[in-house]
């Protein structure tokens, strides 16, 4: 977090901030459209007590803003800012978790960003994208232990939920983001420096 504060005035260009914000809003809306589908899925799973699976299965999608912001802006702090922004959009649109959405957004952003940080913010390719999916899963799962009361689940269910979440992040935050990055590079729309 220190680096963000120091670099805020010098390295964050207006255009980058706007791009980050727009990407977050777009992702927020795409998954807002998904809302009804998610609600049907979780309503169907609720009587069986399997609702957390619906949540874990789609978590990767809600977290896409972070790795996308990172690969587009290529700066420390982009992931956190992108995800917090996306969470703010979700909160303003009327998300089910109210203010907790913002807190979760912050945790998700930090979790995703950790992957890029481990590689020293030098690598923005698939290695870093997958690293961010791994750290994102671990960090958000620890958060869920507290926020979603996961500590009271049996061990077997926890393992199943963790695997579900990991698959979701690997797909949305990993495979899909790598594919998007390829498309962007092919199109050549983001040549800078």
């Amino acid at each position: 977090m220190q680096t963000i504060l120091k670099s805020k005035s010098t390295r964050w260009a207006l255009r980058d901030v706007l791009l980050l914000a727009f990407v977050a809003v777009f992702i927020g809306f795409i998954f807002w459209v998904l809302g009804p589908v998610y609600n049907i899925l979780s309503a169907a799973l609720t009587p069986m007590g399997l609702e957390p699976f619906a949540n874990n299965l789609l978590l990767g999608g809600w977290m896409m803003a972070a790795p996308l912001a990172s690969i587009l802006i290529k700066q420390a702090g982009a992931g956190v800012l992108g995800e917090v922004f996306a969470a703010a959009v979700e909160m303003l649109l009327g998300g089910q978790w109210g203010v907790a959405t913002l807190l979760s957004g912050l945790v998700q952003g930090v979790g995703s960003e950790a992957g890029f940080a481990i590689l020293g913010y030098k690598n923005w390719r698939w290695q870093a994208i997958f690293a961010s999916a791994v750290t994102g899963t671990i960090v958000t799962f620890v958060w869920s232990l507290f926020r979603d009361g996961y500590t009271s689940y049996s061990f077997g269910l926890l393992v199943a939920l963790f695997i579900t979440r990991f698959i979701s992040l690997l797909f949305f935050g990993g495979v899909l983001v790598v594919a998007i990055q390829k498309l962007i590079e092919k199109a050549g729309v983001l040549r800078r420096d």
Binding site: S42, G49, P52, A54, N55, G94, D148, G149, Y153, S154
Partner: peptide
């Protein structure tokens, strides 16, 4: 709005919880 996530957690903790679930 909170009904769905609320009862989602409630049911799963009732069924699959351990300890003071």
């Amino acid at each position: 709005l909170p009904l769905l996530p609320g009862f989602g957690s409630w049911f799963s903790l009732m069924y699959f919880g351990t300890g003071d679930h």
